[in-house]
Simulated scan of single mutants.
Amino acid sequence: MHGGALSTSPRAGAVVIFYHPDAACIERANRLAAAMPCIVIDNTPLMLEQAELGLSAAVTYVPNGANHGIATAINQGVERLIQAGFESAIVFDQDSDPPAILLQDLPQLIQAANTKDERVALAGPAYSDARLRGVAPFVRFGWGKLTRIVPDGREPIDVDFLISSGSCINLRYWREIGPMDDALFIDFVDLEWCVRAKAKGFRVLGVPWVKMTHELGGEPVRIFGRAYPMHGPLRHYYQFRNVIALIKRASMPLTWKTTELVKLPVRVVLYCFFPARRSEHLLMVWRGVCDGWRGRLGAYRPR
């Protein structure tokens, strides 16, 4: 494990997931590695050399040579940090650009919780996407809809889940909670892990004074004046498959299930009738629903 030029007082490391990174992704990873120890797990289906990519020697680079999914990549990075004796792991997508306060405050919050034996599994920032609705609220599950909490104030907020990018995992409890679910591959990986952590009595904390810019999906579509994040057909396959698969699990909260059942028909309309390549979107959504119902998980296998 390489050390960064600047070190935070808690033993915190970063895990960045690559998939066909561009020059800006490489630059962000190099900048991050100058601030804290950084592992890059590369899911690009090519075996590339660290120097060839332009990655700093301060980065610990792990090329998978295949797309093993976000869950497996996070697990790989976390295991390396645990073996190196780290206390917390901050996970990032390749397009995440964290502010300095995130790298400092989230590990310190985890460290303070551990000092007081408070069972905090995860702490994460509020995120903003200027293309959508600015700063997104934190959420808790409710019957048929999510309860949205404005990220305001100087006290952490108990929430039901956080997106993985920018979130700080408390490695003290990683073994007790268990790793990310490899079978889910990409979508709802973070949500399922948070649900599992909370079911075991751990807290998931939104940190309202820490905000990170993060883009959800590709270019949003605007419908009746409101912007919705849009993905490609394959990503919609995973979204619908994993929703159905998780709805079938007894471990998932009924409140979350009712919310998703309300959202599903709306998502079908948004994702299948508004973007280009409508028939392709619809086909992949249908395949996702069928595979989710059958419990056919892992990487998508073309028919």
Score class of each variant (00 low, 15 high):
176 E>Y: 04
55 L>A: 03
156 P>Y: 00
142 G>D: 02
269 V>Y: 06
46 L>C: 14
63 P>R: 08
99 P>D: 12
110 I>G: 00
117 D>N: 12
275 P>M: 13
248 K>Q: 15
229 P>C: 09
230 M>R: 10
170 N>C: 03
216 L>E: 10
5 A>K: 12
34 A>Q: 14
236 H>V: 04
158 D>I: 08
90 I>D: 03
159 V>W: 00
177 I>P: 03
288 G>A: 06
258 T>Q: 03
133 R>A: 10
229 P>Y: 01
182 D>L: 02
277 R>T: 12
109 L>D: 00
191 L>Q: 02
299 A>W: 00
103 L>T: 02
35 A>Y: 13
157 I>K: 12
281 H>G: 06
53 L>S: 03
102 L>W: 04
118 E>G: 03
245 A>R: 07
155 E>P: 09
228 Y>H: 09
94 Q>M: 15
303 R>W: 15
86 F>L: 06
260 E>V: 11
184 L>F: 02
157 I>C: 07
215 E>H: 14
161 F>V: 08
50 Q>I: 10
121 A>D: 01
241 R>N: 09
10 P>H: 10
284 M>G: 04
6 L>I: 09
291 D>P: 05
196 R>V: 07
63 P>A: 03
123 A>R: 00
139 V>C: 06
97 D>P: 08
250 A>D: 14
196 R>K: 13
267 R>W: 15
70 I>G: 01
266 V>G: 11
63 P>G: 03
262 V>W: 11
60 T>A: 08
10 P>G: 02
178 G>T: 05
257 K>N: 07
59 V>N: 01
227 A>E: 15
100 A>S: 15
207 V>T: 06
81 L>Y: 07
214 H>G: 00
231 H>T: 13
31 R>V: 08
260 E>T: 08
18 F>D: 00
255 T>Y: 09
229 P>H: 05
72 T>E: 12
154 R>D: 15
141 F>T: 01
240 F>M: 15
127 Y>H: 07
15 V>T: 05
244 I>D: 02
297 L>R: 07
35 A>M: 13
144 G>N: 07
120 V>Y: 01
62 V>R: 09
247 I>L: 13
248 K>N: 14
221 V>F: 11
117 D>L: 12
182 D>R: 10
274 F>K: 08
87 E>Q: 14
59 V>M: 05
237 Y>E: 06
177 I>L: 03
231 H>E: 14
303 R>P: 14
278 R>E: 09
223 I>C: 11
256 W>L: 07
75 N>F: 02
203 R>I: 11
207 V>P: 00
164 S>W: 07
146 L>W: 10
147 T>E: 11
112 A>Q: 13
240 F>V: 05
37 P>I: 07
136 A>Q: 00
68 H>F: 15
37 P>G: 06
11 R>I: 02
173 Y>Q: 01
64 N>I: 08
171 L>H: 04
128 S>V: 05
21 P>K: 07
222 R>Q: 11
244 I>V: 15
264 L>S: 06
81 L>F: 11
233 P>Q: 03
211 K>D: 01
127 Y>R: 07
100 A>R: 12
243 V>P: 00
301 R>I: 12
150 V>G: 02
171 L>P: 04
216 L>M: 12
116 K>L: 10
120 V>Q: 00
74 I>K: 06
195 V>A: 04
245 A>Y: 11
230 M>A: 13
271 Y>H: 15
132 L>K: 00
50 Q>K: 15
182 D>W: 03
281 H>M: 11
93 D>T: 13
